[in-house]
Design a protein around this nucleic acid. Structure first.
Length: 376
DNA sequence: TATTATT
């Protein structure tokens, strides 16, 4: 089932960052994401050549639902940003989980590495490091390695591959329950040439002490998989009654713009920034966040049932409750219903996407529930 | 036997 995991609340980012700023970065590369032995969070600042940028950072392992504006807000707390970009899939608009932050002042870039590298955001531990100069030679340098001895450590894996070049990241996948190696992993080299040489030298070879040969090949391109998954999703349910990913993407950019405005008029990391969104959007301030965000859905057909509300809103995130309001005598829908969603941003996304949506021969009106009573 | 690192 296609799911949009949209942004968490800004407050979560703020809370995580404030914790981080008071405690300092947590060095934890084992819980999430690959790392290199030589370039982990204890020494993220590498000495680069004179030509390397001292202001441009690459940020990896971002939560899937983090927006560019959140990225900008988070890193803007360090210093003035010249530019900021969250990299998205060209076709689907889905975040690829990394982005770039270019500061005006090199000192701020260094401070961002020291402050934000290793920051935990949701289930991720972000990595902040200097971006290498963009070049075709550093693309497609990621290798997939299988058939590894279960006893091989990440360090041993790096030692095996380091003879072919500079390793950017390495990872051995482990069973989530037992933590034992699954015998497969990834090696990202600095340059594609190095990866090619490693394939020539190590594919089909037995590592020292191993009884079985390993397989070394280029890793699948992640954006391809994402596109395929989303496209198959499109074809899988041609009669879907809610918008597909592309329609949602368009709405998403609208919401991004609203967030951008909100962030601009409110002091950074103000807990009230979210309310800025609602007022700027001309949306009534929604009801209590404690029990979730209540959404009013109007112009449902008489035969509408709860399942249609689950189908429409579920793809946008956590839905805790749906209700179709029915006439006591006829048991037919009175034309409206309610949906409760846990997370503000997912609710806002659902509203932005579903308001005005045509369901059958009716055009829905979807908004946050107001304090007014709704008399049809 | 598959995570998301070059705009």
């Amino acid at each position: 089932c296609f799911q949009i995991k949209y942004i968490k609340t800004l407050n979560q980012v703020i809370a995580a960052m404030e914790t981080q700023l008071s405690n300092g970065p947590t060095c934890n590369n084992t819980s999430n994401g690959p790392s290199t032995i030589s370039n982990n969070c204890s020494s993220p600042v590498e000495s680069g050549s004179m030509e390397d940028s001292k202001t441009n950072l690459i940020v990896n392992y971002l939560p899937q639902n983090m927006t560019q504006e959140e990225l900008k807000s988070l890193f803007g707390s360090i210093g003035e940003i010249e530019s900021c970009k969250l990299v998205r899939d060209k076709i689907t608009g889905q975040s690829l989980g990394y982005g770039f932050v270019n500061y005006v002042d090199p000192k701020d870039a260094e401070k961002a590495i020291n402050t934000l590298n290793g920051l935990r955001l949701q289930t991720k531990t972000i990595k902040v490091s200097y971006a290498r100069p963009s070049s075709a030679s550093i693309r497609d340098a990621n290798l997939y390695v299988s058939g590894l001895p279960k006893t091989m450590t990440q360090k041993e894996l790096e030692q095996l591959f380091s003879q072919y070049g500079r390793i950017i990241t390495s990872r051995i996948l482990v069973d989530q329950v037992t933590g034992v190696s699954r015998g497969v992993g990834f090696i990202r080299f600095d340059r594609r040439i190095e990866a090619e040489e490693a394939i020539k030298g190590l594919n089909g070879q037995k590592p020292p002490g191993a009884t079985e040969p390993i397989t070394v090949k280029f890793a699948n391109n992640p954006s391809q998989k994402t596109s395929q998954a989303l496209l198959s999703q499109l074809y899988q349910s041609p009669n879907r009654r809610y918008p597909g990913p592309l329609a949602q993407q368009a709405q998403r950019f609208r919401l991004d713009n609203l967030l951008n405005m909100a962030y601009g008029v409110k002091s950074r990391f103000s807990p009230m920034a979210i309310d800025g969104v609602t007022s700027l959007a001309g949306i009534n301030i929604p009801g209590h966040a404690g029990t979730g965000w209540c959404i009013f859905v109007y112009n449902l057909a008489p035969d509408a049932d709860e399942s249609i509300l689950w189908q429409m809103f579920g793809p946008f995130g956590a839905v805790t409750n749906v209700k179709v309001i029915r006439d006591f005598n006829t048991n037919k829908c009175k034309g409206f219903g309610f949906v409760t969603m846990t997370n503000y941003d997912e609710a806002a996304m659902a509203i932005a996407s579903l308001n005005g949506y045509r369901l059958g021969d009716r055009v829905l009106q979807v908004s946050f529930k107001t304090n007014k009573t709704h008399k049809a």
